[in-house]
Design a protein around this nucleic acid. Structure first.
Length: 579
RNA sequence: GCCCCUGUAGCUCAGCUGGACAGAGCGGCUGCCUUCUAAGCAGCGGGUCGCAGGUUCGAGUCCUGCCGGGGGCGCCA
């Protein structure tokens, strides 16, 4: 089911083609009173054809078939064509949307195999605020991809390898396995890591042990591997606790850590060398993709193998690309990774393309995001300057929401109150992250994200609850109202505006996926919530003028709840039935 | 020095890939609860869209150059 604007475009296309093949009608929603959409394409044509815009517009209108779609079409002197959509058309669309379990969202023409690389915490290191955005945005992207029928392969590329593991394993040995496992299982990863670091800095003997341990790890010494496995397993269990709290799709099965690619690294080097891409530079084996320059203007290398023969992270990233397009048969790989990695990823993509692993450059996409900032517009940190644990952030969101829910609705039973508070608190945290353009830094503000006013999760959740409460109050089952069999009238402007808004849901989903920008869906849902509350204020439902008006309005309520619910779910935000 | 991102109301953010007078929330001011949840709604006030040029019938949106903020630029990941 296409958006109304798309349908109008399709109707106008032939008329525009007749003027100039391929001419774009440029249909946009209109903000003018009484006008639903406008077509701006006549002006551009007028210039090219050397004729007055209004004349072009008139000719377009004369030949376009708008039967059953538009009640009215008017030409403004500048050449805008203003359309008012036919009410019976709107009603039919509303009924069709309600009857469609997908609410009009069209499956993608071709279902793709999409790998989404996101979250990627580090073993034996605390998950902190820096992991929130990648995890939350990645989760929303996965859900949206699934919504339109793509096959999604989540890959959590955790940091489970590298020289720090010598130090971490030695610290584990010093602590004793049981004590270490205990410490890690309570989630005190920061302390564990800091202690290891402190030992490393303080003791030459420890440094030497750590160095030797790295060698043992790399040579797959069984005992060392066993100790390493303890660190990984404990950390993965801890990550899962955080993911469960956050309500994201990730599971331990999605983990494909850096170590997974170890065996492939020599293959990567071999194949690059075989294609003549590898250049020895100061002892390191590098690829120099064209177009990147160094500080001094010399070509910038992607270092695949360091001069000490160790592999850099570029090698791992290349191996992952090779694996994803080769073994996994991916059509598309998305990297939900912070903006600072842009150059690194672009170089990896370029090299993978040169090596023939990445068929087309546009099949690997960096989905970058900016930082979370504190009120002082600096990196979000605690007063003491430490990074904030993600669990603490989640817990505080829930506790703040608990306070708010208790205050606003003291009648909720304690059990339900806690559940609602969890949905509201976590939802608010996630929505704050999703609702602004991801490439920009955003300012973290508890009060704003938990506010019930404005573009927030609680406001949207509440708008949906208001829809549902009408059914509860009237002891009405909403289900029959989504069958598309109940007559709908759109006499009141608020009803009409709401209907037009609800019909844009599929278009909003598509626009969101086009640029991997969850904030577009957020903005749409906020708009729908606003349209609904206006309708709610102006159009009594249970006390409607008559049974027909009541049923008609119940259809709008049911569909509003469905669209808000589906939209929030697609963003990974839970939807309470009461608040 | 080169490259990437960014600059819109006092604050936080939208602005649908160039369309009609730039929108929303918060904060400020004013109204609205015996009526489906006031966790809400309606209204008022508030912007030379960083600056200067350019392209265009039309620019917050595209191009160039400055200014301010953030980030990246060879063996950490």
């Amino acid at each position: 089911m296409a958006g109304t604007a798309d349908l109008l475009t399709a109707r106008l296309q032939a008329a525009f083609d007749a003027m100039e093949p391929g001419a774009d009608p440029v249909v946009r929603p209109s903000s003018r009173p009484g006008v639903d959409f406008q077509a701006n394409g006549a002006m551009a044509l007028a210039k090219r054809l050397g004729r007055p815009p209004a004349e072009i517009a008139a000719q377009v209108l004369a030949s376009a078939d708008l039967e059953g779609l538009c009640r009215q079409a008017e030409i403004a002197p500048q050449g805008f064509i203003n359309f008012t959509v036919d009410e019976t058309f709107l009603v039919a669309r509303i009924q069709a949307q309600g009857a469609d379990p997908r609410l009009g969202v069209r499956p993608a023409e071709t279902a793709l195999e999409v790998v989404v690389d996101y979250s990627h915490p580090n073993v034996a290191k605390e998950m902190h605020v820096g992991h929130l955005r990648t995890t939350v945005i990645g989760d929303a992207v996965c859900r949206l991809l699934g919504l339109v029928g793509h096959r999604v392969i989540r890959e959590n590329h955790i940091g489970d390898w590298g020289t720090p593991f010598g130090m971490l394993i030695e610290h584990l040995v010093d602590l004793g396995e049981e004590e270490a496992a205990h410490e890690l299982s309570v989630g005190d990863l920061d302390t564990f890591y800091r202690q290891a670091r402190a030992q490393f800095d303080a003791s030459a003997e420890f440094r030497e042990r750590s160095r030797l341990r790295v060698v043992l790890l790399q040579s797959e010494d069984p005992e060392t591997t066993r100790l390493w496995r303890i660190l990984v397993d404990q950390s993965v269990a801890y990550f899962q606790e955080v993911y469960d709290k956050l309500g994201v799709l990730l599971t331990p099965d999605d983990i494909v850590g850096e170590s997974f690619y170890n065996a492939l690294l020599p293959v990567v080097v071999e194949e690059l060398a075989g294609k003549g891409l590898l250049v020895d530079s100061d002892g390191a084996r590098c690829v120099f993709p064209p177009g990147w320059a160094n500080r001094d203007g010399t070509p910038l290398p992607l270092i695949v193998q360091k001069s000490d023969s160790g592999f850099g992270y570029a090698a791992t990233d290349l191996a992952a690309l090779r694996d994803r397009f080769g073994r996994l048969g991916a059509d598309l790989v998305l990297y939900v990774v912070g903006a600072p990695q842009a150059q690194h990823l672009a170089m990896c993509f370029e090299v993978a393309h040169m090596a023939g692993w990445l068929p087309n450059r546009d099949q690997a996409v960096h989905v970058p995001f900016g930082n979370m900032l504190g009120a002082d517009r600096k990196m979000f940190k605690t007063r003491s300057g430490a990074s904030i644990k993600l669990v603490d952030l989640i817990d505080e969101a829930v506790s703040r929401a608990t306070a708010a829910v208790s205050e606003k609705n003291p009648d909720l039973p304690a059990g339900e109150r806690d559940e609602v508070a969890r949905m509201v608190g976590v939802g608010a945290l996630k929505y704050a992250d999703l609702s602004t353009d991801r490439v920009r830094d955003y300012v973290f503000d508890w009060d704003r994200m938990l506010s019930f006013d404005g573009n927030t999760a609680p406001y949207l959740q509440y708008a949906r609850v208001r829809c549902l409460s009408i059914f509860r109050r009237g002891e009405i089952d909403p289900e029959p109202y989504l069958k598309g069999t109940i007559p709908v009238g759109l006499d009141h402007p608020a009803e009409r505006a709401l209907a037009l808004g609800l019909l844009e849901f599929p278009a909003a989903v598509e626009a969101t996926l086009e640029t991997w920008s969850p904030h577009k869906l957020c903005a749409y849902l906020f708009e729908v919530a606003g349209l609904f509350t206006t309708f709610f204020e102006n159009c009594p439902v249970l006390k409607a003028p008559g049974p027909d008006a009541r049923d008609s309005r119940l259809v709008l309520c049911a569909l509003s709840a469905a669209v808000l619910g589906a939209g929030l779910q697609a963003l990974g935000i839970e939807t309470p039935e009461r608040m």
